[in-house]
Amino acid sequence: MCAELSLLCANLGKIKESHLVFDPCVGTASLLLACAHFGAYVGGSDIDSRAFAPRDGASLATCFEQYRLTNRFLDVMIGDISHPCFRAFPLFDAVICDPPYGVREDPRTCRRDELFLKYSESKLPSHPSLTLISNSEDPLTFRWSRRLLVMEKTSEYEENGTDLPEALSSYYNSFRLNIFSKVGAIEKEIKI
């Protein structure tokens, strides 16, 4: 994500000095850098370990060094957001992320006329403890755009004892297996 949009996201997220911010899809950490710029302590996770691999001597930590924000960078870890590793109590002041594109739907499984459906608010993610306070469009091309959603926690989440719906759980499991099989193949190629 570009620096300007990352700063805008951090601003919309009301990130302040000493906030604790988590990004579950950290990637290149552009959102974490923007949040650290506003004084937050930041950390995150990503399902793909390649996001953390140093390239040409640079790593996520060196990005924070470049902007003199190392005192705000906690750490990152390999993690799967469909299987949270945190206890069920309030921990973060904000969760901010730019999810990977193309994860929701494999175009090969859609009919061509289904690929270009009109935008509908009914398809936006929702949660009983969150209220949508901003919904902005970021045009990428003439035909494609992405949405910037800002949600605010309005009530404490109460576990109802149910797991993810079976279809959603199946989707996350197949996505996770796909990612880890690719990582395993790459590790074998480079003999890690």
Rank of each mutant, 00 (worst) to 15 (best):
S169P: 08
L8Y: 09
L31A: 05
F52E: 00
S170E: 08
E114G: 13
L69N: 04
I47H: 03
D48F: 02
P100Q: 08
S120A: 07
D106Q: 11
S169L: 10
H19N: 13
R111I: 03
W144Q: 15
C85P: 10
S145M: 04
I133K: 15
E17H: 15
P24A: 00
K16M: 10
C25P: 04
D138F: 08
F175D: 02
E187L: 06
L69K: 03
G44Y: 00
I78Y: 01
S136R: 15
S6V: 02
V183W: 02
D46A: 07
F73W: 12
V183C: 04
H127T: 08
P139S: 11
T131H: 12
V150G: 08
A51D: 01
R111A: 07
E158V: 13
A29D: 00
A58V: 09
I190N: 06
A29R: 00
S120I: 03
R147E: 00
P54M: 03
K118E: 14
G13R: 08
E105Q: 12
A3Y: 02
E166C: 07
R104F: 10
P128I: 01
L117Y: 06
L115K: 09
I133G: 10
L124K: 07
H37T: 14
H37P: 04
F73P: 10
S120D: 08
R146N: 05
P128F: 04
N178H: 09
C97L: 14
P128G: 02
S82M: 05
Y119P: 13
M77C: 12
L33M: 05
E121S: 11
D138C: 07
I15H: 05
I190M: 07
L33W: 00
D46H: 07
Y119E: 04
D23R: 06
R111L: 11
V150T: 14
L12D: 07
L31I: 15
N11A: 14
Y157P: 07
V183Q: 06
L5E: 08
T62Q: 09
G102V: 09
L60S: 04
E187V: 11
F175C: 09
F64I: 11
L91G: 05
K118R: 15
L164Y: 11
M1T: 10
S134A: 14
R55K: 10
S134N: 13
H127M: 11
L60K: 08
A29I: 00
F116Y: 14
A88V: 05
C35K: 01
F73S: 02
F92T: 13
S6R: 05
Y41T: 10
V150Y: 06
V42F: 00
S45I: 05
S126K: 12
H83Y: 06
E137A: 04
I190L: 14
H83G: 01
N135F: 03
L74G: 04
P24Y: 01
P139I: 07
S6W: 00
F180E: 12
R176L: 03
L5Y: 09
P24C: 05
R72I: 05
D23C: 05
A3V: 13
R72A: 08
